[in-house]
Nucleic acid binder design. Structure first.
Lengths: 229, 229
DNA sequence: CAAATAGTGTCTCTTAGACAGTATTAT
DNA sequence: ATAATACTGTCTAAGAGACACTATTTG
């Protein structure tokens, strides 16, 4: 019963947070990357992240690192999983708590001081590149989490700006799920889920086609019935 | 960019695993507890758990601690969430990775060497007791995870022995969800989900009533369509 | 005009759930 | 026999998805 002996004689480790920030840009699912200044993976892309401070909660650490490394303030942040394989960081015993963040496609530099080393990359492209630590697995896990959360939470609205059309929302689902959805059935479904979207009363014209009503996100945290993939 | 400076000058911490082991005993959802030998919570119940070794993966640590503290070998083990609020352990900065485990109702002492300080407690009862650290929140989170996993994974079978009846399986759902289910509709539903259960060809008579066919778990990892709560 | 997008109407097929009824056991 | 559990049959209502059609815009 190891724990009963108290901590001082126990092994200690470094604890880091890493963040997969997703958005939709140019009709693609993209992820925020930073350029690594040191080995491993020096000069290459990696997920933003860093060590948790002693006086700081995990989620606060994720937000702080994101702000420091990319200048981003995200709309949605959720813990995904913790990685702790003994050799995952060749330098020292390090655990990494992974967060998934979602944000709307804001104009570059809308926020961001240290944006020089930070850039958006399409998820498929980043998955084809060699990434340090277990960032590849993290990206796969976070994207899969996002995909399944679209089914039963209103997370899709976090990919959109404050006011959005049903078409905007549908494109989120189509791009994240990689699958075409029937516009008519999708619109009916979304509006039948109590509290998912709230009509603003405005309409917007986005290029060609009939102008669309706009909506803001409602107040539910779970969709029932869910939208099936 | 803190991470870029390398670990040595960064804050370190202790990393523990805690495990919520669930089973169904006496028609109740029960959780495995140990008796704490030291403060905080000395003499009271707590979740089994302990510090992760340097050369050990998280899941291996969870299995080892469980074996050492309770003698149990579980059927199903899944990471739930990591807790890292600064003051959560008054002794030192400690992060805890929570695991959910599920097992069948085996006879007491079927396994177990150190079973003296370990005992099953109904979940509702443990939730009403003062628990050390954030074990209360952990228990709530793990039980909620189990509840939702019943919907879309075959985890219910892990509460049953190798061979089980549809009635056994239904009682798992009823007890974990705290809700009566229609036996006829449940049986039809379960057997219509491809790969959830496989008929053995045997029948068993359990007390009164018509003997029931027995089944073993199938090979799917996700149920589609899901069983709705 | 055509093309593109938004939105409505409606039909069909599947499924969830209610519930009645039959089968087989213990007491 | 009665109670309890297993299992089957059947009806109804709701939801998913296909698809035709109307509405309103740009070029």
């Amino acid at each position: 019963m190891v724990r009963e002996q108290g901590p001082p004689q126990h092994p200690w480790a470094y604890v880091a947070v890493d963040v997969v920030v997703l958005t939709i840009r140019d009709r693609q699912l993209q992820v925020m990357t930073i350029r690594r200044a040191i080995a491993p993976g020096q000069g290459g892309p990696a997920l933003p992240g860093g060590f948790v401070r002693l006086d700081e909660d995990l989620e606060a650490a994720a937000r702080r690192e994101l702000r420091e490394e990319t200048g981003l303030e995200v709309d949605y942040l959720e813990q995904v999983r913790t990685y702790g394989a003994p050799g995952r960081d060749p330098r020292a015993r390090t655990f990494a708590v992974l967060y998934l963040a979602v944000m709307a496609d804001l104009p570059d530099g809308a926020a961001g001081t240290d944006a020089s080393a930070a850039s958006w990359v399409p998820v498929d492209e980043l998955l084809a590149v060699d990434l340090p630590f277990d960032h590849h697995e993290m990206l796969v896990d976070a994207v899969e989490r996002a995909r399944s959360k679209l089914e039963y939470t209103p997370i899709a609205a976090s990919f959109c700006r404050t006011a959005f059309t049903i078409g905007d929302l549908r494109r989120v689902y189509e791009i994240v799920w990689g699958k075409r959805l029937n516009p008519a059935n999708f619109a009916r479904k979304v509006q039948s889920v109590e509290g998912f979207v709230v009509e603003t009363g405005d309409v917007v014209s986005e290029g060609r086609g009939r102008p669309a009503k706009t909506f803001t996100r409602g107040d539910v945290t779970r969709l029932h019935p869910p939208l099936r993939r």
